[in-house]
Amino acid sequence: MSVPRAAQPPAFAEDGVAAPGRGLVDQPPTAPRTGWRVLPSRVVALCVVELQKIRHDRTEIYTRAVQPVLWLAIFGETFNRIRAIPTGSVPYLDYLAPGIIAQSAMFIAIFYGIMIIWERDAGVLTKLLVTPTPRTALIAGKAFASGTKALLQAIVVLVFAAVLGVGMTADPLRLLGVAALVVFGSAFFSCLSMSIAGIVLTRDRLMGIGQAITMPLFFSSNALYPTSVMPGWLQPISKFNPLSYEVDGLRGLLIGTSSRLALDFGVLVVAAVASICVAAALLPRLAK
């Protein structure tokens, strides 16, 4: 009785229906990827999905652009005029623009965990976990998918900043560096979010925690003002905030302030990798 049906002419030939699925299952995919090659392939697959989703529904990119636009157009312009924040020879609006780009990308990433909770409740996550995808590759894929989304957001803010007259670099290599910083920064914050999701397991709690940590992360970074004008107790905290390094790097690349680019990239890459590992370790809690 073993697999006789495969050889038989299809039973449904009577209805004149062509054999569906024929050729489909005869040969499984030929060369399964193994070892390290799984990682980039899964990252690409999940980034493609993210781009397709955005293509079908762009509203989020625009609605999420409202806040950063207000920060630049109102807060930025005002403080530009009153010169209350010491930014050296750089106009305040120029100084602020990279900070707001980083902040808007972070805001997107920090709520990315909601998606994974939704996917869990909908059964999508279970299905992803039954594909030949190691947990770290799955989380890395999600992290960079979130980075892709944040990058599109950053481009919208960047264009608006240019419209406001912020003098930014047009050097393609530097812009590539900007993109890399935004992607790695978002990868870190989205993994932070997915880790919290793995701990609290519900959408509402994650929303609450997300709301609670975004502003502290924002204000304890150098996005709005130089670290040197912060209260003394806040300065060391700012050093532990990856957002500070993202902003420092973006500022150096975009408007040419002095920054420690090697350190900025190093911190963000290490933070992203570490957070991917933590989120991957917490993933089984979501899969239970």
């Binding site: 995919p29 399964p32 899964r42 397709q52 989703k53 079908h56 909908a122 999508v124 299905k127 030949p132």
Partner: peptide, 25 residues
Amino acid sequence: VPQQLSADSGLTGRENVAMFARLFD
């Protein structure tokens, strides 16, 4: 195929299937 309906509603049918083609190499 899990118990809940689990296709991604923000993608087309074809994209939903293509995603799994990619994930299975």
